[in-house]
């Protein structure tokens, strides 16, 4: 029983198809280990871009560069949100203010908070109350909490987690925690949503649910989504654009069909033919 989403979920001012994210010649290394090597790619507004590749290919490192947790030694990442921002010179919380929201590969929720509080923390950058007004809980602080609670309730409806809204997150099952984490990222009112293996460790039914949520968020609300996922069936089904990483380099970039026919990608996934 859904009430329908009454708020604007997508905070990006761009038109679908506009270039939103430009990763330009990014190289990242830890000591002697090269995690990323001259990676360049573009993501357009309102597309679902999947990043795939074998384990250790540098997928999560790339996402960490986009959200400001890692700073690449070479290259820059530009993000368009009305005007252009250089993400590689910003701190993670400043990037969050631009509307770049993400979830993590290993669930990184606030375990001792309720589902509601976790989602409300996602609203952090939109809330205005200070220590004083919050401590008094009078006037604006209270009105603000109620207004943003309405937004949160829309997300709770969207993700069908009404029954658990007051439970402590640490007590929930893995699948539900993954869903709450998606909700927390949505609560930011993202201009771009980054999902790091949102379906890892799920059964087929749970994967279908998450895939449906992702398609809803993208098709109904127009939110750009970057997703890392290992399930090729899902990736090829839902994404508009696939980027293949291997040993820190981009070896394939295009529509799902193009990537599937790319000999380099086939080699990386299936191993090189001995007779080839």
């Amino acid at each position: 029983m859904s009430r329908g989403f009454s708020h604007v979920l997508n905070s990006s001012p761009l038109q679908p198809g506009d270039t939103q994210l430009i990763v330009n010649n990014v190289s990242l290394s830890f000591g002697g280990v090269k995690a990323l090597h001259e990676v360049s790619l573009k993501v357009q507004q309102s597309e679902i871009a999947a990043i795939i590749g074998p384990n250790g290919a540098g997928k999560t490192s790339l996402l960490n560069c986009i959200s400001g947790l890692y700073h690449p030694q070479v290259g820059e990442i530009r993000y368009r949100n009305g005007k252009e921002h250089i993400l590689t010179s910003l701190k993670p919380y400043q990037i969050a203010k631009l509307g770049v929201a993400r979830s993590f590969q290993n669930i990184e929720l606030f375990k001792h908070m309720s589902v509601l509080d976790n989602l409300m923390l996602g609203r952090h950058v939109h809330l205005k109350s200070s220590v004083f007004s919050g401590g008094l809980f009078w006037g604006r602080a209270q009105r603000e909490e109620i207004a943003h609670r309405k937004f949160i309730e829309d997300i709770i409806d969207l993700l069908e987690i009404e029954a658990i809204r007051k439970q402590q997150v640490g007590t929930l099952s893995y699948g539900l925690q993954k869903r709450v984490e998606l909700g927390r990222a949505l609560a930011l009112q993202p201009s771009m949503l980054i999902l790091d293996e949102p379906m890892a460790g799920m059964n087929a039914e749970e994967k279908e649910d998450i895939a449906r949520f992702i398609l809803d968020i993208n098709e109904e609300h127009g939110v750009t989504i970057i997703i890392i996922e290992h399930d090729m069936g899902v990736v090829m089904d839902i994404s508009d654009h696939v980027i293949v990483l291997d040993f820190g380099s981009v070896i394939g970039d295009g529509t799902p069909d193009e990537v599937q026919r790319n000999p380099q990608v086939i080699a990386a996934y299936l191993g090189e033919s001995k007779h080839g």
């Binding site: 993670p92 969050a96 908070m113 952090h124």
Partner: peptide, 24 residues
């Protein structure tokens, strides 16, 4: 139960996630 206190608890539970969600 408001913004600042929630950010405090978030820092305790998971400071990196808090930073990525926009908490300075």
């Amino acid at each position: 139960r408001t913004k600042v206190g929630r950010a405090f608890i978030a820092i305790r539970d998971q400071d990196i996630a808090a930073e990525v969600m926009g908490v300075n």
